[in-house]
Design a protein around this nucleic acid. Structure first.
Length: 414
DNA sequence: TCTGGGGTCCTAGGACCC
DNA sequence: TCTGGGGTCCTAGGACCC
């Protein structure tokens, strides 16, 4: 059987772990630059705040309702996520970490045994880490997702339906809540009077394949109990790496745009080398803020195919800086720069070139840099001085401490 | 004043080859 | 000048996920 373990209101729950005073309080977490509400505790959900609401528009309302807001603290969420996943791996070898807050597991045993195990997983993660999770168990991934939704509604946070219970559960599942049915397919299906998962599984294979491609067909089969979505053993290497963030404040000068671009390129190559890959295509985009109607708008991008694949930071940073110089036009208020690396291949696996010998010193330098940064913090050795206080830095006015790092750890007086 | 940041996969159509 | 059958590669666009 397949279990889906999903953390409840993950980011909001993380913020509560080191703040017992917030246990029953409504908490929301904001996106980058404190832009939108991206996560809500169950108390905040009850207040009817829309996910994706823009913070500056709902700020007063949130304050009036006693909601506590946080800027997103990814260092903390990553750390707690890893701890949750480590507990899951104690239960079975086959854990597929699907996202920061959920994982699939393959479990074996009788109905009662698995139910016990699910409850045990739940209470252990709550006690050891402080994060509430829900567990759904079923024959396929898609059904496990459905069961997980039921688990969230139940008292004990666990749901493992028996065969005869499925038909009523599928009737109870809105078509838009099916994993793989997004809001566009949802609209089309509802127009055709297909409102629930129970309606959906009655459709013909050929019709679903034609309307919703092979992926829709897989979803259909999975809902009927036939496993059709593959199991991923490890995280697949990325085929494209993006580093893109809106600026905290608008940027006017080429120098600042270059600084930001250098920083993002540095981040992107870091991800590239961590997965032991090289890239051969580099794309850079710049744009103004489309929401500021009073501003003249400009957005542009360019790309270059390098002669040889690389993961050498100075090569990539240099190319990104050239592209930004090419794209820059004076007189605009820039909001964003994005760096995109593609044509990614595993190191030493790419097409060889008879006349090209890579410089071995580059690999040695990067190896040394990565080792230094791993020990001393990730931007100690950087391509440009990383002084704080850039106008383009992310706005994070409501950031919680990094409780998990030694210099910000809580002191408990007994 | 202020509006997230990542990713994946599939299909159709155009350009080209024999 | 027109015709058939079998391919590849690339790009744009559309759908989805967290």
């Amino acid at each position: 059987m397949i279990a889906l373990v999903d953390c409840n209101s993950f980011y909001a729950s993380c913020e509560k772990v080191f703040r017992p005073d917030l246990r029953d309080k409504p908490v929301v977490v904001l996106s980058n630059n404190d832009g939108c509400v991206v996560a809500m505790s169950k108390e905040a959900k009850k207040l009817g705040i829309a996910r994706g609401a823009t913070y500056f528009e709902v700020k007063k309302e949130l304050e009036a309702a006693g909601v506590i807001a946080f800027s997103s603290n990814y260092t903390l969420y990553d750390n707690l996520s890893n701890r949750v996943m480590r507990v899951l791996k104690d239960y079975c070898q086959d854990v597929e970490v699907y996202s920061i807050d959920e994982a699939f597991m393959v479990l074996e045993g009788t109905h009662d045994e698995l139910l016990m195990m699910a409850k045990d997983i739940r209470s252990k993660i709550l006690q050891w880490i402080g994060i509430p999770v829900s567990v759904g168990i079923a024959k396929t991934k898609t059904l496990a997702k459905v069961a997980n939704k039921q688990a969230k509604k139940s008292k004990d946070g666990v749901c493992y339906p028996r065969e005869e219970e499925w038909s009523s559960i599928l009737e109870d599942t809105q078509v838009g809540d099916i994993w793989g049915v997004g809001y566009r397919y949802e609209k089309r299906l509802i127009n055709l009077n297909i409102k629930t998962a129970a309606d959906f599984i009655k459709l013909e294979d050929t019709w679903v394949k034609k309307q919703m491609t092979i992926n829709g067909l897989r979803t259909l089969w999975e809902l009927r109990g036939r496993p059709s979505i593959t199991w991923e053993d490890g995280p697949p290497s990325k085929q494209g790496i993006i580093s893109s963030k809106g600026f905290g404040n608008l940027v006017k000068s080429l120098d600042e745009l270059l600084e930001a671009g250098t920083d993002y390129a540095h981040t992107a190559v870091g991800k590239l080398r961590r997965q032991k890959s090289t890239c051969q295509i580099i794309q850079t985009y710049v744009s103004t803020n489309p929401f500021r109607e009073q501003d003249a708008q400009y957005s542009n991008g360019c790309r270059r195919v390098l002669e040889h694949p690389t993961s050498y930071t100075p090569d990539i940073v240099g190319e990104v800086r050239n592209q930004i110089r090419y794209l820059f036009r004076p007189g605009f208020n820039y909001k964003r720069v994005s760096v995109f690396l593609t044509a990614i291949e595993q190191e030493n696996r790419g097409q060889l070139d008879l006349f090209y010998k890579p410089d071995p010193r580059k690999a040695m330098i990067m190896d040394a840099v990565d080792r230094i940064n791993l020990k001393n913090g990730y931007s100690l050795v950087h391509c440009s001085p990383k002084k704080p206080g850039h106008s383009w830095d992310m706005r994070r006015e409501l950031l919680s401490p990094k409780y998990i790092s030694l210099d910000e750890i809580l002191v408990v007086k007994v």
